[in-house]
Design a protein around this nucleic acid. Structure first.
Length: 133
DNA sequence: AGGGAGGCGCTTC
DNA sequence: GGAAGCGCCTCCC
C-alpha cells in the first residue's frame, strides 16, 4: 500500500482500523495469560468474534519487541496441541518455554492434563474438547 | 489420515 | 475498482 494521502504520510504505519483493533485486542488477551497456563487460537477468536486465522496472523506477525515481551508461546492450536504448521525452530522454542513453565508435552505436541492448565479467555468457551483426552 | 473450504482481512496485480 | 492468492487455524467430509 503506497502513501498517497496527507494522513497516510503523517501516520505511515496505520493499517486499516479494523485490523488494528483486532491486533491490539489479541495482544492484550495474550498478555493476560498467566504463567503455567495456555489458551488456543480458537478460544481467543471466539471471544473476539473473529476467525481463528486472524488471531494466527496477528501472532505470526509480531514485532521483535512484542515477541520478546508477549507470552505468545502460551497460545496453541485446538485440543491443546502445539501448531504443526510452524517452523520447527519456533515450535521448539514454544515447547521449551511451556515446559519451563511447568507444562508437560508429549511426543506429538499435545499438552498433558490440558484441562488443568487451560486459561479461559472470556465467558464463552465453545471449544470441542470431546476427544482431547 | 489427508485434503478442501471457510467466515475475514491483507497484499499484490 | 475488483479479482485472485495467502494465512503459527479450524471444521467437515
Amino acid at each position: 500500500m503506497r502513501p498517497t494521502t496527507i494522513s497516510s504520510l503523517l501516520m505511515p504505519k496505520q493499517k486499516s482500523q479494523t485490523f488494528t483493533r483486532i491486533r491490539a485486542e489479541v495482544i492484550r488477551l495474550v498478555s493476560l495469560i498467566p504463567v503455567g497456563k495456555f489458551t488456543t487460537y480458537g478460544s481467543i477468536a471466539i471471544h473476539m468474534n473473529v476467525v481463528p486465522r486472524h488471531v494466527a496472523t496477528v501472532i505470526s506477525r509480531l514485532t521483535e519487541e512484542e515477541s520478546a515481551t508477549l507470552p505468545w508461546h502460551r497460545v496453541v492450536s485446538t485440543n491443546a496441541r502445539i501448531s504443526q504448521n510452524m517452523p520447527i525452530e519456533i515450535a521448539s522454542v514454544q515447547q521449551a518455554r511451556l515446559q519451563v513453565e511447568g507444562l508437560s508435552i508429549d511426543a506429538k505436541g499435545y499438552i498433558k492434563n490440558a484441562d488443568d492448565h487451560f486459561h479461559v479467555v472470556g465467558v464463552r468457551r465453545e471449544i470441542r474438547w470431546t476427544d482431547a483426552d
